[in-house]
Simulated assay, not measured.
Amino acid sequence: MNSRTLGKTGYSVSEIGLGCWQLGGDFGPLSDQTASDILRAARSLDVSFWDTADVYGGGQSEERIGAFKDKSGVLIATKLGRGPQFEGMTRYTRDKVKDSLAGSIQRLGIDTLDLAQLHCIPIDVLRDGEIFTWLDDLRDAGMVRHWGASVQTVEEGMLALRADTCTAIQTIFNLFRQDAIDTLFPAAQRANVGIIARLPLASGLLSGRMSAATAFTSGDHRNYNRDGAAFYVGETFSGLPFDTGVAFADQLKHWLPTGMSLADLALRWILDQPAVSTVITGVSRPDQLKANAAASRMEPLEAALIEKLMDFYLEKVRPQVRGGI
């Protein structure tokens, strides 16, 4: 596994990381054994960046990571700002932020958080910026080593970058969401802020295994949030209507280089962006992680293909994306 530096944190992180939303059971039931097997596979593959949040499974994702014994050399990043203590994401205070971080520290079984990220909090809170000062204070108090922000739109990412002490931006970025290339990525590079790319396969659309007949369990956000009924529509299928996204994915299959799957193409394309530090992929089986990790060792895509993929996004995909970009 190749590694990159996560901005001014100085941390060395694996190019392919592990998204841990599924460890909370939010994509359907996941046994303790399977969760442990996924984490064990991550260790064996040198996947050294694990991303979780306090609300995944009501803390279950953090607890499962905390119970896993072999975490040496792993950077564990968590998120805060969407839990019940924030009362519908309307009331943020320094004490509530502190309590949220303390809960994550306890569940993860550690003394200090490597990286705490604001979890897609309201844009008005980002505009106000006072929460950045609270995180600075809690960093100085030893609760966190670094803080960053997980965002839903380019505008939100740019607001977080106003804080000199922000060290990482996690953003939706994939073949169906390319806008960050033009503004957010250059700004992050100038500030030496790491970029964590999430939803690299657009909730599975870019795995190449879905069809219009694909169904999801009732507890899977790809069922209950496919049109944004529960939270930001862009978090599910990158904001595309499901059938439209499947059709776009099928078109991309005609351009696959020899020996590449659609998932390979999607991951390699992200890794070919120099601003990206790591790509977090969520998996429900250990073998999926092994397949994802292989993208780190693949050759870069040809420039002509990258240009074709950009044109396809601008002309076909972008007009169909719902929610802010």
Rank of each mutant, 00 (worst) to 15 (best):
R91Y: 06
S12G: 06
G142H: 09
S238C: 07
I105G: 13
L314A: 11
H254W: 13
I110W: 07
L206H: 10
D137G: 13
S14L: 00
K290V: 09
R107N: 02
C20T: 05
G103N: 10
R318W: 01
F185H: 04
R177D: 12
P200Y: 00
I65P: 07
R91G: 08
G148N: 04
G259Q: 11
A304H: 09
L205C: 03
T93M: 07
E302M: 09
A41H: 00
G109F: 12
G157F: 04
A35P: 03
V246K: 03
L30Y: 08
W147G: 08
G25H: 04
E299S: 14
E156S: 02
Q170N: 13
L262I: 03
I325Y: 03
L39Q: 01
S203L: 09
L314N: 11
A116G: 12
T171A: 15
R145Q: 12
L267D: 10
A188C: 15
A212D: 09
K79C: 04
P84G: 09
V283P: 01
G10F: 07
S211P: 02
F49R: 05
N174I: 06
K253A: 11
Q85A: 12
D243L: 14
V125I: 13
R190T: 15
S218I: 11
R190S: 13
L6W: 06
A295F: 01
I105C: 12
S218P: 08
F27M: 10
L271Q: 11
L271Y: 11
S61V: 05
G204A: 01
T167A: 15
